[in-house]
Design a protein around this nucleic acid. Sequence first.
DNA 1: GTGAAAGCGCTAACAG
DNA 2: CTGTTAGCGCTTTCAC
Lengths: 347, 347
Amino acid sequence: MSRPDSDAPQDVTAKGVQRGRGPTMGDVAKAAGVSRPLVSIVMREAPGASIATRERVLRIANEMGYVPDERARKLRQNSSRLIGIAFELQQPFHGDVVEQIYLAAAESGYDVALSAVAPTRDEPTAVESLIRERCEALIVLGMKAQADDLQRIAERVPVVSVARRLKAPALGIVRGDDKAGLRMAVEHLASLGHQRIAHIDGADAPGSADRRASYRKTMQRLGLGDNIDVITGGLTEADGARGMSELLTRPVPPTAVIAFNDRCATGALDVAARTGLRVPANLSIMGYDDSRLARVPHVQMTTVSQDARELARAAVDLALEQIHGQAPREIIVQPRLVVRETTQRPG
Amino acid sequence: MSRPDSDAPQDVTAKGVQRGRGPTMGDVAKAAGVSRPLVSIVMREAPGASIATRERVLRIANEMGYVPDERARKLRQNSSRLIGIAFELQQPFHGDVVEQIYLAAAESGYDVALSAVAPTRDEPTAVESLIRERCEALIVLGMKAQADDLQRIAERVPVVSVARRLKAPALGIVRGDDKAGLRMAVEHLASLGHQRIAHIDGADAPGSADRRASYRKTMQRLGLGDNIDVITGGLTEADGARGMSELLTRPVPPTAVIAFNDRCATGALDVAARTGLRVPANLSIMGYDDSRLARVPHVQMTTVSQDARELARAAVDLALEQIHGQAPREIIVQPRLVVRETTQRPG
DNA sequence: GTGAAAGCGCTAACAG
DNA sequence: CTGTTAGCGCTTTCAC
């Protein structure tokens, strides 16, 4: 601002419109010599204006740099056409799902409001802010909150829980079939010839109990019951690293490991590499989620895919259903085995 | 909804308030037998109501489950007290900064609106949506957009760019001192006794040119000019992996590597481990950012810290300054060397 | 095809 | 301390 550079040709500020306080719909109407509602019709691309008017108004609006006020618009319409998402800032898989929700929501003409959960920002805070913005429905990703809390919120606004198994009849639920997923993982490794297959679990994370149980059951069924080995893990790289370290102290270490998720598997991979184990030559490792982490070119992790797009679409569908008054229901998305390069037959 | 379970004791719906269409301020006023503004005063904790009234109104509002409509409130106040953030969903460091911005903004009484940038959601879209919500200022994290584009936006609303070096007088700029950061990194490794120090750069990413130049200059100054080795990298694990692979094909490979950021370093670490190189025994590796990635317990990466809290606070400060009409300026945050466990003297 | 009037939920200014 | 009046920027009737 040292010099008044660029006195732009279109000197709209002459109209009394200043930086920070942008032009309003009334300003555009006045400048175009029409009424406010007419401008509204044009901006919404609603029927009721001649092509000529439409073009002229649009041109003038553009010149003035008019941008409609989304808040005022949503306030006036009795529906906000807004879906709120509570997600974790540091969970790559959440990022994948959020991206897909943007897409799915847009297709249905809905906007999205984001509210982050992080160490210094807890779930109630995140959800509360979405309610204050009058979202018509909430999609919560992998929250740790008690089912009771979510139930209470669901009395006020439709809630869809994603990637979390819980018994909450008032909630829409979208989740992967955890039992099927772990079954596929074990079967994949067994079919390669592995027998000592260990599982680093997700501790008390959503879905962990199911996956643990399915791991045990499948091992039994395949006659590998004696090799069952479950280690307490978690959702992060650190948990995976800890679990892997522990597994390596076994008298007879496993030849294959199924981690709770991709982050956890990443930690396990890391420990393996540092210990001098070649993956997959000496040790096979599997993740879960098929997040961006698994697709990193150099990693190319074999994993169980919870298709983010499918989960997102299901979540948005459930949200819309509930908005339209239908009863909440549960959608179980089938996982898919994605074989990449961290598994092979035991050396 | 198979069964009409839980006909909750507090049957507020009798008041005509239904699911989805929550109670309004008028409803609360009527129920409490006071006027609407009085309720407003109570909810905002503004002066002008007796303690007794305050308590009664608050109790009734709670019973009815009243939550103020943030949109209506912001619309009425001529200031929205809203700061918009455009960030990348898959960049862990952005997550760190966003979390800290929430904190810093809250201290100044500001709310935060998030808008994600992702492969399927470009920067103009993200920024546009923030403008429609009438944010009073925008904070954009590491955007690739042309300075021109941001300049144009800045004519409309104050913009603060974080972690990106560009010449744009109309923008507030917050960035780490990239030259100082890379100088510290080289000096650290040199002081440990390393001579063959390579740099996997950030290609055309913001800050990359400065870091590259500083790497070269510092190497020269320390008499290591003949060992200068810059590889084109990037922001992701894949870029780091590629760079590391290439470095390992050198006739005489480096004993230490400085990656452009922590993600990039993670890819490099991974390749090193798979190749059987022990870090830091056989090879030292440094990251940049001190994101959560570097702090993962098992990784414990030596890195150059761009303190997320400091960056966030600076960004919010600049945003507030510009909102209050001050001219945009630049804040350069000094980086800090964080020595952890991926560097040691060469074996 | 266009304009006038009313109101979304809330807060700011004043009057009592 | 409390109530009335007005209006934020937009959309929705409903006349013309």
